[in-house]
Design a protein around this nucleic acid. Sequence first.
DNA 1: CATGAATGAGTATTCATTCAT
DNA 2: AATGAATGAATACTCATTCAT
Lengths: 209, 209, 209, 209
Amino acid sequence: MSIPCPEPLTGRRREIAAAARSLVAERGFEGLRTRDIADRVGINIATLHYHVPTKEALIELLALSMRDDFMAQNIARPREGRPPVERLRMELDDFRETLETDYELMLALAELIERARRDENVAAAIRPMQKHWRTQIETILAEGRDDGSFRTDLDPEAAAIMVIGTLTTFPRFEGPNPKAFDRIAAELWRAIINPGRDDPPGPQILPGT
Amino acid sequence: MSIPCPEPLTGRRREIAAAARSLVAERGFEGLRTRDIADRVGINIATLHYHVPTKEALIELLALSMRDDFMAQNIARPREGRPPVERLRMELDDFRETLETDYELMLALAELIERARRDENVAAAIRPMQKHWRTQIETILAEGRDDGSFRTDLDPEAAAIMVIGTLTTFPRFEGPNPKAFDRIAAELWRAIINPGRDDPPGPQILPGT
Amino acid sequence: MSIPCPEPLTGRRREIAAAARSLVAERGFEGLRTRDIADRVGINIATLHYHVPTKEALIELLALSMRDDFMAQNIARPREGRPPVERLRMELDDFRETLETDYELMLALAELIERARRDENVAAAIRPMQKHWRTQIETILAEGRDDGSFRTDLDPEAAAIMVIGTLTTFPRFEGPNPKAFDRIAAELWRAIINPGRDDPPGPQILPGT
Amino acid sequence: MSIPCPEPLTGRRREIAAAARSLVAERGFEGLRTRDIADRVGINIATLHYHVPTKEALIELLALSMRDDFMAQNIARPREGRPPVERLRMELDDFRETLETDYELMLALAELIERARRDENVAAAIRPMQKHWRTQIETILAEGRDDGSFRTDLDPEAAAIMVIGTLTTFPRFEGPNPKAFDRIAAELWRAIINPGRDDPPGPQILPGT
DNA sequence: CATGAATGAGTATTCATTCAT
DNA sequence: AATGAATGAATACTCATTCAT
């Protein structure tokens, strides 16, 4: 189901992509210098260009590597067959985990999304990831509305943007703080679940890991 | 209540800020060149530097000018004394209006916020604006929860981030499309208002799905 | 009649073109470096780029400046109305003079012609000059054949290439040596004039200024 | 009589020289890249450097290979003992043939000669070839003048340059066009042969205008 | 013989900034 | 206020060459 990176990341290319990612997270695309990437990897600039011919190709490589990493986390845990409530829970937990274990990925992704507006190559690399995430959430929301666990007046397409917007905007205000995240996730949860439902939405109620 | 721009924008400085803003909206900070700004204003680069000594100062000027414009829109309509439901409504309407009339401001602001993470000067200029908006929404939400028009289990601080995140993320998916915005705003509305309340939330209800 | 350089060579541009010319004469296009040109003019590379935006534009400027200089020498002395014999004489004298006073121009021109084969811009700049020279010689030869001063079996178009080829190839063997040139010019003369004609081809016979 | 290539061209070295030649013909020395040569041969650059240690050595190899090829064509047909008229004829025919069958050699040679002016190694490799050709033509012309078949006022040394200059300059104007070449060759012929001679210059006369 | 990877020294070009006028 | 000209410091990219395998 995932669209894999066409050229699998061999040793050096993997190192280069990793160095580029952390530099983008630190300084943004504005401050991304090929020389810095080479320095961080510990190679000569010419060597960098041997492995990745142009800066544009490098950004594309970065975009693809990040998309793959981001999507890999989503696919790790099987969601098929589980009820929508549980799947939304998993979605929030996944985001929380990425926030804690790979905040750098999150920051770099934010830069990438901003850049995608002007760079068609980046947009092309990022789009499948965005679409995948959005569709996944839309499906969960639609199914949850239909089975009565979510609000009956829920608009899945609009609510999906609400979920994504809330999650991605949160770190801009609070950073990777997991406690603060739980509070946001809980609010999102309450905004979505069906308030008229008798039985509680699951064994453990938010907030909580 | 507004924090005024320390150096008032004289003719040339105002033109420069406007040119910088539209260029940032078009190309992002990554592609912002002083020469392009001068060209757009119709002056020489040396003249640009006469009015704004450095690029850093220029970015600060831009940040301040945008903050002032953004906050001016909020202050235009008096909100004091009105009920929370109505004030939330106005908040959404304000955003919608900015989206329609000054989408460029919105785009440039997104770039500015991204940049603020690494640029303390920009952060300092932007922060009051962000704080102002966030506090305003938090207040509305808290009062609305307390008067029973919003969800009783609402967490105003978390929900404020949800509102801001949804609004600012929306254009990334749908652009300045007002129809699509109304759908998002309606969903946000339903996520916030008190579903158990008898009387309708106001004279005009937002268009649903 | 001459196609002038569209942008007249102002001070700096003139200096740059001159520096480029002597460097091309010395090292060929292969060894032409913008930095060397800037050094020779005594300016910074950035300043060079201020006056001539790209290397390509610089080469075009060079080509145009050389074309103009070369053609100026041809136009200096009025040839209208004079008999073909005398005009051919002037043609050879002109070449001899350029050889003596501006051998650098000659060398650089040779490089330019070689480059024109692959560079359409250079070709476009050079072509009018080549055509002008060729046509001028063809006309002289045709008229001289018709008035009986040149060989009656002369093929003006073919002979023009013979004249040009002999003149331009000569320095490759003998350098700018004027004595050696006179010998070549004399041979060319004898190859062209009508051997059956009674009266001598002119007051003074070659070689000799 | 031929000066053989000191290191005989083994398989790979031969291939490399051939690839270099066609690349020089296409792009000139200015655009000659070792990597392109290796690519055309189908080997790695490191392998290229195994066979030819430096670029300079490569250019020397190229010069030697071209000199050998060019001179081989001259030696193929025995000229000894034949009358000057016939030998000049053969000289022109040889050139015509090279023009038709190996125009690439001709183009590359032109580049090489231009480069020889600045590169002593190339000059050293090329000089014997140039000298050989020049001397050969001078001898033909001197003998033809003495036996009355060529102009009696012929200056063999000057006329040799005229012949070489005409032949080598021709392709710059007309390319490898054989019809156009015949016209030039005919003109050259008429410029050299003795016009006062009764008997025709040979069994087959060159096509005239 | 052959190659993948690496590199030092360049190479044109860019950009914010300065300064004399 | 305004500008033409100038510049130092970068910046992405190139190329012949080397070396371990």
